[in-house]
Design a protein around this nucleic acid. Sequence first.
DNA 1: CTGAAAGCGCTTACAG
DNA 2: CTGAAAGCGCTTACAG
Lengths: 336, 336
Amino acid sequence: MAAQAKPRATYSEIAKAAGVSEATVSRVLNGDPRVNPDRVAAVQKVVEELGYKRHRAAAALASGRSNLIAIVIDDDLSVFSDPFWATISSGVSRVLMQNELQTLLLVASVDSVDGPVAHYLQGGEVDGAIFFQLHKETLVKRLAKQGMPVVISGTPHGSSDFVYVDSDNFGGALQATKHLMAQGCKRVATITGDTVATAGNQRLEGFLQAYRERGTVANKNLIAHGDYSFESGKEQMRVLLERDLGVDGLFAANDLMAIGAIAAIEEAGLSVPNDIKVVGFDDSIMAQTSRPSITSVRQDIVRLGETLGELMIRKLAGEEIEPVILPTELVVRESA
Amino acid sequence: MAAQAKPRATYSEIAKAAGVSEATVSRVLNGDPRVNPDRVAAVQKVVEELGYKRHRAAAALASGRSNLIAIVIDDDLSVFSDPFWATISSGVSRVLMQNELQTLLLVASVDSVDGPVAHYLQGGEVDGAIFFQLHKETLVKRLAKQGMPVVISGTPHGSSDFVYVDSDNFGGALQATKHLMAQGCKRVATITGDTVATAGNQRLEGFLQAYRERGTVANKNLIAHGDYSFESGKEQMRVLLERDLGVDGLFAANDLMAIGAIAAIEEAGLSVPNDIKVVGFDDSIMAQTSRPSITSVRQDIVRLGETLGELMIRKLAGEEIEPVILPTELVVRESA
DNA sequence: CTGAAAGCGCTTACAG
DNA sequence: CTGAAAGCGCTTACAG
């Protein structure tokens, strides 16, 4: 549709100028090692001079490969509130682009195994798919079974053998809780996220592990269940305080709940970190600007996106790939 | 690359089953009004039964249209900190998908007019481009001149005739400042964002307009220049307080600076909103969770993304389109 | 209103 | 190692 300054070059021009056949042009451009070096040089020279760019649609039609990788994002509200999404996507896109692949953005309801997204992906329009926020696994399972390369962000449930990339939720939570203990906290509580999802569950497990490593078991009443929202952090902290267990440390499964909890603590006439020390998770901008600033577990989101892209590329190249767990880091601030 | 359960249907099968030519199949699928209704029905029936999906690459090659729209995002750090980006993109993607267009995500340096992104876009690989965070206009201008449909997020500089979508930065700032005045503030100051960019400039203009509508002119010393960061909000508030002008109201050009400013105000032994009332911009999650919670100007980000997509579709359909300014809304909380 | 035919720009067995 | 040729699945003047 865009009117070009001059019509784009094609193989026929290149072939003529370089004195070879179109087949040879194709081989050179696709890195076929059998081509005579002199011809390779000749073709490359012409390609350079003409500023030639391969016509993707034509290549896709002829080869059966689209060079398109879909990023599939569930079209629910969580997209709008998840600050990581943009960062992950940009990491994916950058890596794919460096490898001559394009990133297709698919934002839609992934609920149904027969919905538009499912049809689309099964239509062979993309060479691979990267899933975010995987709620239902049925579709992904089917795609994988059909041979579609699939990589997932976040640890999936069960013993499924999907390849995924995730931050070390368990290790981060463990480190956070041990930090609180090292600061002298005797009664460390936690406010969990959604523990049905693996991230929330792993963060809870990390918390429990800290107690185990200390040779004890966490009192059930030290565990309160939130949903990652500010309000739930506030409410659950109230619940914890009402239980009157002498809580002097809190690991919240994200920063937003940590901030909510601090609000509740201060409303109860206590102070952070003097009376209760608090550690969050995410190292969000809020952790930095909140008063007191919040000690938090940092994930490398950019790296996460890049890793998703890299795994996809290796998978497309036919390599056997394994899930990757990225390390987290505790950023110590005022709250603990 | 994905192994299909069964090979996809093609026009030849549909044509055979429906008793028409492939040309007619194409016409029906592209909504050509001249086709006899009976044949339309016959083709649609077969298409339905076979669960046929058009092969995009083939259609693109034959028609010269890719049905791909690029979202171009500058690969600088601001991407990682801009919470709107994900939301806008998802809005764009949803609208495009409903219109059978695909969204291509391009995250790369757009600095150079001769860089990879420039070549890519000029290679005719996409039917249109939506630009975010437009720093350099040269590339966009050239693309537009070449006939590529282009829509921009945010008001561009100068009198360029690009089509853009933006929130009413001027109106939002005006409303915010008038609100402070209506609350009894006599000396309302502002901390601006980057006023080289239009959004920052328009927010400053809105602030100045509030003074004009009151029949006065804002004292130059009531204006401090920040850069949207927490730190700059804090620093510039200190500067304002040191000027000793009796500031009793502040309009900060975003929430992060508002939060920084409040930190500086409290450090100076003053309180918000009692001594100084503060209004921010963005209505971010931080405005809700900060203590005190922050009165802020809300933009409809989802609508912004959808509007970008809609304008692109109308442009592709050959319509004349005009820039759109979306209204903002003041959300009143504790800080003012 | 409809069909036969050419063509979009690549890729890839096939034969040498 | 290389070329001629067929073909990928659509679209679109052209002629009727």
